[in-house]
């Protein structure tokens, strides 16, 4: 028999393979060569220094939003609000980055902290409502996403600027971008944020696996009632989980604001970094290391896809379909487990 651990590793791998096969079938159906298509994708993600830099750049916020969703999941909560938390974190980082003057050693950490704080606050509201009133966090976080989107647009147009559609650039002392990394990767937008993301992943692993607070959070995620009976404060843990989760997502926003873009434009629609984080967390099995690996995969798919129209004539949206199917397969892990067990039995 398969052990549980084996399943947890097999299901995501099988899901990715099935998703890619489905993508290949779609390409075949529309008269494309799937090998050419996927080769173009790989080339577009790793083919040269520029592409590689862009891939890592895309992986950076994915790691953080993936961690955000995964962290909440571990405490039994579904944070669909990563998207809104990204947006408010982005704004907070840019706000600090454009209005304050300080040496880098103070300014950059302050801007990052502000982003995490803003995201955390955005997570606090659904956390509080869940803890105190038992309101389901999914709907609240969806609503908070829209409030974040429209509110930040409003603030950019009316408070940060005088009816302009983008903020000023953040000053040098708050920027994550690096001339050295950019020249190294033929002027991609690669920035130091990847280090922040990796540190965040280690932080999450340490917090959840090695501390009492983390043990309580996981315990509340497994069984709320048993945890309460054991004397843990369930409400406090729910709020804490949402705040930390929001903090991760807020940092993802800072990656865009202080790194990739260096400013914040008004958004007519969502950035999708937060929504993609759901896919990342699911595929990564809601663990820190898994999330980093999954973020790497999705970053590769997203950036590689941009090369598919020129490399193989395939519309880049094919990758969106593949990602959606991967989510389906992971979500339907029950049926994959069932199929695996059947195969195993027949093999005997």
């Amino acid at each position: 028999m398969f052990s549980n651990r084996m399943f947890n590793i097999l299901v995501p791998i099988i899901s990715v393979v099935l998703g890619l096969i489905a993508g290949a079938i779609i390409m075949l159906g529309f008269g494309y060569n799937p090998f050419q298509g996927y080769l173009a994708l790989i080339d577009g993600a790793f083919g040269n220094a520029y592409f590689f830099g862009e891939t890592i750049r895309q992986v950076t916020p994915y790691i953080l939003t993936g961690l955000a969703v995964a962290f909440a999941f571990r405490a039994g909560l579904f944070n669909i609000g990563a998207e809104g938390q990204v947006i408010v974190g982005w704004l907070a980082a840019v706000w600090i980055g454009t209005t304050i003057e300080a040496p880098m050693i103070v300014h950059l950490p302050l801007a990052l902290f502000a982003a995490a704080l803003a995201g955390g606050m955005w997570g606090f509201v659904p956390g509080l409502l869940k803890a105190k009133l038992g309101v389901h966090e999914v709907i609240i976080t969806i609503m908070m996403n829209y409030i974040a989107l429209y509110l930040t647009n409003h603030l950019i147009r009316n408070v940060l600027t005088d009816t302009k559609d983008t903020t000023d650039r953040v000053v040098e002392s708050a920027a994550l971008s690096s001339e050295w990394l950019m020249t190294l990767t033929s002027y991609s937008r690669l920035h130091w944020g990847i280090l922040v993301a990796l540190v965040a992943a280690v932080f999450m692993w340490f917090l959840l696996e090695k501390t009492t607070a983390g043990y309580e959070l996981r315990s509340v995620g497994y069984n709320r009632h048993a945890s309460e009976y054991a004397g843990m404060k369930v409400g406090k843990n729910i709020i804490l989980a949402m705040v930390i989760s929001g903090g991760f997502a807020g940092l993802a926003g800072a990656m865009e604001g202080l790194g990739t873009f260096g400013y914040m434009p008004t958004h007519s629609a969502f950035t999708n970094i937060g929504f993609d984080g759901i896919a990342v967390a699911l595929l990564g099995g809601n663990a820190a290391l898994g999330t980093v690996i999954a973020a790497f995969l999705f970053g590769t798919l997203k950036i590689g896809a941009l090369n598919m129209p020129t490399g193989a004539g395939v519309p880049a949206e094919l990758v969106e379909i593949v990602i959606a199917l991967i989510i389906f397969f992971v979500a339907s892990s029950y049926i994959i487990r069932w199929a695996l067990l059947r195969l195993k039995k027949e093999g005997k």
């Binding site: 929504f275 896919a279 094919l318 379909i321 959606a324 199917l325 989510i327 979500a331 339907s332 029950y334």
Partner: peptide, 30 residues
């Protein structure tokens, strides 16, 4: 997904959103 395969219904719904937009824009470009 959500009735027969016992998938998390929220996750399956999120996947529906991704899939519809992906398919729609893919076919539009096609």
């Amino acid at each position: 997904a959500s009735v027969s395969f016992r998938a998390d219904q929220v996750v399956s719904g999120v996947a529906i959103n991704f899939l519809a937009l992906g398919l729609g824009v893919f076919l539009t470009k096609q």
